[in-house]
């Protein structure tokens, strides 16, 4: 019988650390534990996922958690991105935790399970730790409290251990411990039945020879990466003030991703489906004609 937690966030928000803090805390309580991040090709700002499992007996599961008991979402904007996979298995989950000001509008908008709990970690993290995106400890504390199987003492020891491993200075660790206590004591504990693993039913398919064209990792639709929308990585959004723009073309030349094109008159057009929000264009614009708008609250 195992409890399965899946953490979602963006690269840089500490989702992996959150999964490790919960893992360490459960370990200190005496549970059998597994935790693991998924390493893909994605980078800062891109959706990332990490897992923690714990239980009283040996855990006979590995890898991706498709049917989590608890889904922990560090960044509410991920709900809008189906590729982030936040919703996978939500119908069988006992609860969802959202780092957001309020659950209700999101529950309605995304048809989330009614047992969705929201709490504004971003605001408190900003206030106590000083960095809005340093969500790992808040997410871990919320998780520990909600599942109800990890006492505060073990949570705090785990926070200390994991942050020391990341070489955080003592001052920052102390602030994070304060944050952990506050979050832990602000949230309720829910009933989480430990249960056996579930699997979506599947049918077996046989793989026969399908010809030489299909058999090698080649791509004939060159340039098709355009279909991959990297705009969801964006934490800030560059916006052009056309009144100030002198049409120098620097932003077009220097955009690493080629997400800026020039219109007939030479004005830059930003492709928001793909702009990753590096904000290089804003920094280099000689006349400050590019402004920044925050897109992800928890950053």
């Amino acid at each position: 019988m195992v409890l399965r937690i899946r953490f979602h966030g963006r690269g840089g928000q500490g989702v992996k650390t959150a999964s490790r803090i919960v893992g360490t805390a459960a370990f200190l309580v005496g549970y059998q534990v597994q935790d693991s991040p998924v390493y893909g090709a994605e980078r800062r700002g891109a959706a990332v996922v990490a897992f923690t499992r714990f239980g009283e007996e040996a855990i006979l599961e590995r890898g991706v958690i498709e049917h989590p008991d608890l889904i922990v979402v560090g960044d509410e904007t991920l709900l809008a991105n189906p590729a982030a996979g936040v919703m996978v298995g939500q119908e069988t989950a006992t609860a969802i935790f959202l780092n957001a000001e309020s659950a209700q509008p999101l529950v309605e908008q995304y048809a989330l399970s009614p047992s969705t709990i929201a709490w504004d970690l971003t605001r408190r993290t900003q206030a106590i730790v000083g960095v809005a995106s340093a969500l790992s400890v808040g997410l871990a504390a919320a998780t520990a409290r909600l599942v109800g199987l990890i006492p505060e003492a073990q949570l705090l020891s785990a926070v200390r251990r994991e942050l020391m491993e990341l070489h955080l200075p003592e001052g920052a660790i102390a602030k994070n411990l304060d944050l952990a206590s506050e979050v832990f004591n602000a949230l309720p504990s829910l009933e989480f039945p430990l249960r056996d693993g579930q699997e979506t039913p599947q049918k077996i398919s046989s793989v026969l020879y399908e010809g030489l064209l299909r058999g090698s990792p080649s791509i004939l639709n060159t340039g098709n990466a355009e279909q991959r929308q990297t705009g969801a990585w964006r934490l800030e959004r560059p916006e052009v003030n056309f009144e100030q723009c002198t049409r120098c073309g620097l932003c077009f030349l220097q955009c690493p991703d080629g997400a800026i094109t020039l219109d007939q008159n030479g004005y830059p057009i930003i492709d928001y489906d793909h702009c990753k929000g590096c904000m290089l264009c804003q920094t280099l614009c000689p006349v400050q004609a590019i402004l920044s708008k925050q897109e992800v609250r928890s950053w």
Partner: peptide
């Protein structure tokens, strides 16, 4: 800058890090 060729041979949508200097160079 105006004299530089404007054709693009790289579409956006790659998974490289935001702000990658290598990608700008290749482009």
């Amino acid at each position: 800058f105006k004299d530089l060729p404007s054709e693009e041979y790289l579409s956006p949508g790659s998974p490289l890090c935001a702000g990658c200097g290598g990608l700008t160079t290749l482009r």
